[in-house]
């Protein structure tokens, strides 16, 4: 994963109203913590962060008022209905030391079990890996076209790039093809039949 530079400023606006004002001006409140040092409140450009998120960038050289720190984008809080970021968490890292990170598995192909009446069930599509910050893969694709009925793809089956080790237990199921359960819908109820259902009460 590429290490990208990002400008940040120390933030004195800490309260709810001050932070809301900051957001109106296009800035995003964020925090940098970790490595045994004091957490620092910063503000970054909301637009810039969204561009990095689109390109799946996670490792940054944060330029906080002249001092450059390496940081890993740990978490972003999103506003649920507008999809705007609310806050970002950066964790200080040493680029020469391995860190743990989440990696999403992308399933490619049409499992053969689906054509036999199966249903693909995605169990844990995110795995935990350990590697150098610069070696974190941007994505991990795995071909599941060979997955038959009642077969499971486990974390141990995934082919990881060199230098990346799996932290998630190897027996963890990533996805499996299960036989489809056929649900027979009851015939449409008539009004008379539906009436008692409306009055139905749970036992108190």
């Amino acid at each position: 994963m590429k290490v990208v530079p990002m400008k940040a400023e120390r933030r004195s606006a800490l309260g709810r109203n001050q932070v809301a004002q900051l957001r109106k001006e296009g800035w995003l409140p964020a925090v940098v913590y970790g490595e045994g040092r004091e957490p620092v409140s910063i503000s970054i450009s909301e637009w810039e962060l969204e561009q990095h998120v689109k390109q799946h960038h996670k490792v940054f050289h944060l330029d906080i008022g002249g001092t450059v720190e390496s940081a890993f984008l740990q978490e972003i809080s999103w506003q649920a209905t507008t999809d705007r970021p609310l806050h970002a968490d950066f964790k200080r890292i040493d680029l020469t030391k391995a860190i743990e990170a989440d990696l999403e598995v992308t399933a490619v192909g049409y499992p053969m079990g689906l054509s036999k009446g199966g249903v693909l069930s995605k169990d844990h599509m995110v795995i935990r890996i350990s590697c150098l910050p610069t070696a974190i893969p941007e994505s991990l694709e795995h071909d599941i076209s060979g997955l038959d009925l009642d077969q499971t793809l486990t974390a141990g089956d995934l082919v990881l790039p060199e230098g990346v080790t799996l932290v998630t237990p190897a027996h963890t199921s990533i996805c499996h093809v299960a036989p489809a359960k056929v649900v027979v819908e009851a015939p449409a109820a008539t009004e008379d039949a539906a009436a008692p259902a409306a009055d139905a009460k749970p036992a108190s």
Partner: peptide
Amino acid sequence: MLMPKRTKWRK
């Protein structure tokens, strides 16, 4: 239809 099996208070 979905509804609770039992509740402490009905209303």
